[in-house]
């Protein structure tokens, strides 16, 4: 397959990125968000600022911000209406460090990345700028590895048979929970 074939296929399959974000959300809620990556374990949580959109030309959109939005009835209803996660603010932890960042479901670009390391000690030999940039690059590597894990499942024969029913069950559960929250059960 040539590079131009890759490009055509890439454009046609760009929906995978928002599926990836939605799958991360599912894994965080259902399996605790712990991932064993080749570069070391990480734990992940969807934090705030959810943007959801449907996958069609005249996209339906929903935005939720503040007040634990992943647990809001509106989030469950958006998923049940066919919307997928387009952008969100995540928190990723590895050892003592935490990264707060936004991940874009069109490009997988990282934005507003902040790194917190309460155990970091001042080391005169270390360049704080180079350390900050390296932390950004490390986060990029972790997200790419997570995307690789998603793709391995997405392109596996078991995706439609096993993972899709689990995702739908998750949405159904969220919706039932939402019904109770709003008193329409």
């Amino acid at each position: 397959m040539s590079k131009s074939d890759d490009l055509t296929l890439a454009l046609e399959r760009s929906f995978l990125a928002s599926e990836f974000l939605t799958w991360l959300w599912f894994r965080c809620e259902v399996e605790g968000g712990v991932f064993d990556l080749p570069s070391g374990g990480v734990s992940l949580a969807v934090e705030d600022a959810l943007s959801l959109a449907s996958w069609d030309d005249d996209a339906l959109k929903a935005s939720l911000r503040g007040g634990a939005p992943t647990r809001r009835p509106e989030a469950a209803n958006a998923l049940a209406s066919g919307l997928l996660l387009k952008k969100a603010r995540f928190i990723l932890a590895r050892d003592t460090r935490e990264w707060l960042f936004s991940l874009d479901g069109d490009t997988l670009d990282l934005s507003s990345v902040k790194v917190v390391d309460p155990d970091a000690e001042e080391d005169e030999d270390e360049d704080p700028l180079a350390t900050k940039l390296a932390a950004g690059e490390e986060l990029r590597g972790a997200i790419d590895a997570l995307y690789g894990e998603f793709l391995a499942q997405r392109l596996d024969g078991a995706w439609d048979r096993v993972e899709v029913p689990r995702l739908r069950e998750w949405v159904r559960f969220k919706l039932e929970h939402a019904s109770k929250q709003v008193g329409v059960a």
């Binding site: 397959m1 890759d6 490009l7 296929l9 890439a10 454009l11 046609e12 399959r13 760009s14 929906f15 995978l16 990125a17 599926e19 990836f20 939605t22 996958w55 998923l79 049940a80 066919g82 997928l84 069109d106 490009t107 997988l108 670009d109 790419d144 995307y147 690789g148 793709l151 391995a152 997405r154 392109l155 596996d156 024969g157 899709v164 995702l167 739908r168 949405v171």
Partner: peptide, 28 residues
């Protein structure tokens, strides 16, 4: 870096290009 290109590269390296071609958007 683009998610589509990474997917195409991932699929090519693992012989999963046909699976990628057949992938349809997830309907929840």
């Amino acid at each position: 870096h683009s998610p589509g290109m990474r997917a195409a590269q991932f699929a090519r390296e693992r012989g999963l290009t046909q699976a990628l071609r057949e992938a349809r958007p997830l309907a929840l």
